[in-house]
């Protein structure tokens, strides 16, 4: 379940990206938000409401940073 939650968060972050910026497409924004919301529910289910909420936020931040950095290096390569 944890693995699925992490994957969902990553997919949610990816779908928010469009050429290095936050996507303008409403459908992508809605999709990204929905996927992240699903991940949040999974985290809350795993860890309880308060803990799950904070763990999701931290995971979102970490994965967002990783995705951005990896994207930068990938572009250079």
């Amino acid at each position: 379940m944890l693995f699925i939650a992490i994957i969902l968060t990553t997919i949610g972050i990816f779908s928010l990206n469009r050429d290095g910026a936050l996507t303008n497409k409403i459908s992508n924004q809605v999709f990204g938000t929905a996927i992240n919301f699903a991940a949040l529910i999974l985290f809350c289910n795993l860890y309880g409401l308060a803990r799950g909420f904070f763990i999701f936020l931290a995971m979102f931040a970490l994965l967002g940073m990783c995705v951005t950095f990896l994207r930068g290096y990938q572009k250079r390569a």
């Binding site: 928010l16 990206n17 290095g20 910026a21 936050l22 936020l57 931290a58 931040a61 970490l62 967002g64 940073m65 995705v67 951005t68 950095f69 994207r71 930068g72 290096y73 572009k75 250079r76």
Partner: peptide, 30 residues
Amino acid sequence: AQLFTFRVSKTFSLMLNDGHKVMSVWAVLF
């Protein structure tokens, strides 16, 4: 507008600038 922007291949200054913003903004709540 630059949430996912990290430019490694340009100048060092730009990379620092992007890195500073990426780490600041993504983890702002933390």
